[in-house]
Computed example of a mutant assay.
Amino acid sequence: MRSATAESGHLYGVGVGPGDPGLITRRAAELIASAEVVVYHAGTGRSSNARAIAAELIPAEAIEEELRYPVTTGAATHPDGYHAQLAEFYDECAARLAVHLDTGRSVVVLAEGDPMLYGSYTYLHERLADRYPTEVVAGVPAFAAATAVAAEAISRHEDVLTVLPGTLPVPELARRLADSDAAVVMKLGRTFAGVREALRQAGVLDRAVYVERASREGQRVLPVADVDPATVPYMSLIVVPGLDRRADSAGRAVGAGTDARTVDR
Results as ranks from 00 to 15, higher is better:
161 L>S: 12
244 D>W: 01
259 D>I: 09
196 R>W: 00
184 V>D: 07
81 G>P: 07
233 P>L: 05
88 E>Q: 13
261 R>A: 13
17 G>L: 02
48 S>F: 01
126 E>F: 00
254 V>S: 09
251 G>P: 07
182 A>I: 06
25 T>H: 04
214 A>C: 14
109 V>P: 03
65 E>A: 13
178 A>Y: 02
17 G>R: 05
120 S>D: 02
218 G>M: 03
236 S>A: 15
2 R>Q: 10
105 R>V: 01
118 Y>F: 14
257 G>W: 03
175 R>I: 00
26 R>N: 11
181 D>T: 10
142 A>F: 02
54 A>T: 13
144 A>E: 03
250 A>T: 10
265 R>H: 13
114 D>V: 00
220 R>H: 08
100 H>D: 10
167 T>E: 05
130 D>P: 01
245 R>Y: 11
96 R>V: 09
202 A>Y: 06
95 A>N: 13
169 P>L: 03
94 A>Q: 08
131 R>Y: 03
67 L>E: 12
260 A>G: 15
254 V>Q: 08
19 G>K: 13
12 Y>M: 10
148 A>V: 11
258 T>C: 02
106 S>W: 00
219 Q>T: 13
87 A>R: 07
170 V>H: 04
38 V>K: 06
125 H>S: 01
256 A>N: 06
143 F>M: 09
129 A>Q: 05
122 T>R: 05
92 E>W: 04
134 T>S: 07
78 H>M: 05
108 V>F: 03
49 N>S: 11
205 L>N: 09
249 S>E: 13
50 A>T: 12
168 L>T: 08
98 A>K: 10
81 G>H: 03
25 T>K: 02
254 V>K: 07
61 E>V: 05
82 Y>I: 03
177 L>W: 11
76 A>P: 15
94 A>Y: 06
38 V>H: 07
28 A>T: 12
221 V>C: 09
53 I>R: 05
78 H>E: 07
241 P>V: 11
29 A>Y: 01
122 T>G: 01
100 H>F: 12
141 P>L: 00
55 A>F: 01
217 E>G: 14
195 V>A: 07
47 S>E: 15
61 E>A: 15
91 D>L: 02
58 I>N: 14
197 E>A: 15
134 T>V: 09
134 T>D: 07
136 V>C: 08
195 V>R: 04
56 E>C: 00
222 L>R: 15
142 A>P: 12
225 A>R: 15
218 G>T: 11
186 M>E: 14
185 V>F: 08
197 E>I: 01
215 S>I: 13
102 D>R: 15
255 G>P: 01
135 E>A: 11
188 L>Y: 08
40 Y>T: 11
20 D>W: 06
99 V>H: 08
42 A>F: 00
208 A>S: 15
